[in-house]
Amino acid sequence: MLRYIFRRLLMMIPLLIGITLISFIVINLAPGEPTDLQTQMNPDVSAEYQQRLRLQYDLDKPLLVRYGKWLGRLAVLDFGRSFASDHRLVRDKVLERLPVTIMINLLAILVILVVAIPLGIVAAIRRNSFFDKSTTILVFIGFAMPSFWLALLLMDLLGVRYGLLPVSGIKSLGYEYLGPVGRFFDVARHLILPVLISAFGGLAGFSRYMRSNMLEVIGQDFILTARAKGLPEQVVIGKHALRNALLPLITILGLSVPGLIGGSVIFETIFAIPGMGKLFYDGVMMRDYPLIMGVLVMGAVLTLAGNLLADIAYAIADPRIRHSPASR
């Protein structure tokens, strides 16, 4: 098992280099340079200054030379400084945005799991019942509805008309003056809408997935055996069927890791949440190459790590995989 993990880790290195190379080339293919966006259409800027900026940022060098330099710095975990005029370290910019994005996405996944799993199970057991059909319609409405639109409606209803929840942001203005309990509830109140909105869209996929897994398992021989043994239905479903139906969810959870740090431009923008999605989006619009690359590298590492973790977790949870020759 350890050798397997080690081998997988080694394989990640060329993969990662490939990902960064392609990303680097692609973002440089986009027309426009960071210096254009800072200086063009500004009556005060001379062409000479634009040229000087290009030199400062190494933009006059060939693409591969710049990539080589960048990769060299990355080897010592130096992501460089942002091209934005604050010239801050990319690492700092990313790290200060990461916690809130991770928190919201974790909470959203939690909400999705807590709601979608029972929903899927019940829908599978009572297949084609009224409950099954109505939840299907409901989750697909959630899936199809533009989340920004729903967010604005809820903000208007709960925030402006009834004043129950804050409209946007993650902390109130007087946050510093609150006690620990007050702070907790303040942040919690701010998170309700963003978490609900981001979970709502994900419900459809997960609950459908759970339902079909469950249906597949229920149709299998060992369930028939369990029932034949005279086990009560709760045990058949809750123990024998559920465990097996949950296995594929590990893979899905592993795949959702990049989403944890990717954030969402849409709801971070709407709810004024200082997260990764917005940071990345602004970086792209500004052609802030170091920042874009920094976020992409972290995303790639986490995706690969998520896949690895999912595989390992799978092996631990499922003896059939643990004992197959490939994992030795």
Binding site: L152, S168, T269, I270, K278
Partner: peptide, 10 residues
Amino acid sequence: LIPDLSTQFL
């Protein structure tokens, strides 16, 4: 810092 104008209005 509120990036969305509709949110600002709300």
